[in-house]
């Protein structure tokens, strides 16, 4: 089903994710106000905003984990509330609380969770899709650590396990929440290299939620700046000082350094 759908879709231009006049209230607090923008196939899109700007709310709305108070969220043209083709989406959370305690699952077991396609009575006794799981671990460079407990890994390694878990689903859209929070600079660069490669070679659309302006400037092809509502949507490089200041509420200026792009 997935493959044929993929082939029917023309490349570029069609929306993977659409917010249409979306509002969300927590009780009486307005978290998201009349948000409209879309993420198109092939983009590396970012949702940028300060803390408390509603970007995590938007992410949860996008994944159908919460439902808008008003308006519509569409995943591949279908209402996120009724969306069932979860195989098309790979979600990488900022962190998994359980992985920090003494959660016993190995990297392999966590990635194998990504192959879930519905109840399987024999799931305990067999591991399907072994080669796919090993491929995904290889892609993120963790083949050697496949039998390690995820709870004994570094933050960066855990993040890559979660990415592999998303990739094993062979998704069309990868959704990442603060993907490199708490990761050192070298690992961050490695992580973004990988994202760019996945975007180019496997034409996976990427949507990341972040408050890191530097990463957005370097990595994203489009950005939606959110402060409850959309302050700016377009290429990060066309963003004006005024819009950035409006976003963060303080005067801001972006200096682009060519050296950041030269080494690619």
């Amino acid at each position: 089903m997935k493959k044929s759908e993929k082939q029917e879709q023309p490349h570029g231009g069609w929306p993977c994710l659409e917010f249409r006049n979306v509002w969300y209230r927590y009780g009486t607090d307005l978290a998201v106000q009349d948000v409209t923008f879309q993420v198109e196939h092939g983009e590396i899109a970012a949702i940028l905003g300060p803390n408390g700007s509603g970007k995590t709310t938007l992410l949860k709305l996008a994944l159908g984990l919460m439902h808008p108070s008003q308006g519509q969220v569409l995943l591949f043209g279908q209402s996120a509330e009724r969306f069932r083709h979860w195989g098309r989406i790979g979600y990488v959370p900022q962190r998994v609380e359980a992985a920090q305690g003494d959660y016993p699952a190995t990297a392999y077991e966590v990635v194998s969770q990504g192959t879930y396609r519905g109840p399987d009575p024999l799931a305990f006794f067999r591991s399907k899709d072994r080669s796919k799981i090993l491929d995904a671990l290889e892609t993120v460079g963790l083949s050697d650590l496949k039998s390690r407990r995820i709870s004994t890994m570094s933050v960066g390694q855990r993040q890559r396990v979660l990415l592999a878990r998303a990739l094993v689903r062979q998704p069309d859209l990868l959704v990442l929440d603060e993907p490199v929070a708490g990761v050192d600079a070298a690992a961050e660069e490695q992580f973004y290299d990988l994202l760019r490669r996945l975007n180019k070679e496997r034409s996976i659309t990427v949507l990341m939620v972040t408050h890191d302006i530097g990463a957005v400037m370097r990595e994203a092809t489009t950005v939606a700046c959110i402060n409850r509502t959309v302050v700016y949507h377009g290429s990060p490089h066309a963003m004006s000082q005024k819009e950035l200041s409006e976003l963060y509420g303080i005067p801001m200026e972006v200096l682009l350094h060519d050296a950041l792009h030269e080494h690619r």
């Binding site: 949860k60 994944l63 159908g64 992985a99 699952a105 399987d120 799931a123 305990f124 878990r165």
Partner: peptide
């Protein structure tokens, strides 16, 4: 129950939101 729903149970115990976006 535990063997039939091992995958669902382990995903739910790992991260409920992640499990939901897998269709659990």
């Amino acid at each position: 129950f535990v063997t039939f729903f091992f995958s669902e149970l382990s995903q739910t115990s790992f991260d409920p939101d992640l499990a939901r976006t897998s269709g659990v």
